[in-house]
Amino acid sequence: MSRAPSTTSLLCLEASARLGSFTAAADELHMSQGAVSRQIQTLEQRLDVPLFTRRRESLVLTDAGRYYLDEVTPLLQRLARATANVMAFKWRGGDLSLSLGASVGAYWLIPRLPAFTQAHGEITLSLSTRVGPADFKAAIDASLEFGDGRRSDVHSDFVLALDLAPYAAPGWIAVHGKRVTNDTPRASLLHHHTLVDGWDHWFRFDGLAGNPGRDGPRFEIMSMALNAAVAGLGVALLPDYMVADHVAAGRLKRLSRRQFRYPQKGYYLVYPSASAGRPALQTFRHWLLQMAAVAQQAVEPGN
Score class of each variant (00 low, 15 high):
residue 165 A to P: 04
residue 113 L to I: 06
residue 68 Y to M: 05
residue 106 A to E: 10
residue 271 Y to M: 06
residue 134 A to H: 05
residue 26 A to Q: 08
residue 151 R to A: 06
residue 126 S to L: 06
residue 2 S to K: 11
residue 30 H to L: 14
residue 103 S to P: 06
residue 149 G to W: 07
residue 33 Q to C: 08
residue 282 Q to N: 15
residue 153 D to H: 07
residue 78 R to P: 07
residue 22 F to H: 01
residue 111 P to D: 12
residue 118 Q to I: 01
residue 149 G to H: 03
residue 291 M to F: 13
residue 223 S to H: 12
residue 187 A to V: 12
residue 295 A to R: 02
residue 77 Q to G: 03
residue 4 A to Q: 10
residue 114 P to R: 10
residue 114 P to M: 02
residue 4 A to E: 14
residue 207 G to P: 08
residue 257 R to L: 15
residue 160 L to E: 01
residue 209 A to E: 03
residue 162 L to D: 11
residue 253 K to I: 08
residue 88 A to C: 12
residue 230 V to D: 02
residue 140 I to S: 00
residue 294 V to D: 15
residue 51 L to T: 02
residue 13 L to C: 00
residue 51 L to E: 05
residue 170 P to A: 12
residue 244 A to T: 13
residue 99 S to C: 13
residue 59 L to F: 03
residue 219 F to E: 08
residue 72 V to R: 07
residue 251 R to C: 00
residue 110 I to G: 10
residue 292 A to Q: 02
residue 45 Q to I: 11
residue 16 S to M: 07
residue 227 N to K: 09
residue 126 S to F: 12
residue 139 A to E: 15
residue 129 T to P: 02
residue 70 D to N: 15
residue 48 D to P: 11
residue 250 G to T: 15
residue 252 L to V: 01
residue 208 L to Q: 03
residue 296 Q to V: 15
residue 48 D to A: 11
residue 111 P to N: 11
residue 68 Y to A: 01
residue 148 D to K: 09
residue 165 A to L: 00
residue 218 R to G: 14
residue 68 Y to C: 02
residue 53 T to C: 11
residue 111 P to I: 01
residue 282 Q to R: 08
residue 136 F to P: 04
residue 225 A to R: 02
residue 89 F to S: 02
residue 3 R to A: 14
residue 236 A to M: 01
residue 77 Q to P: 06
residue 180 V to M: 08
residue 71 E to I: 05
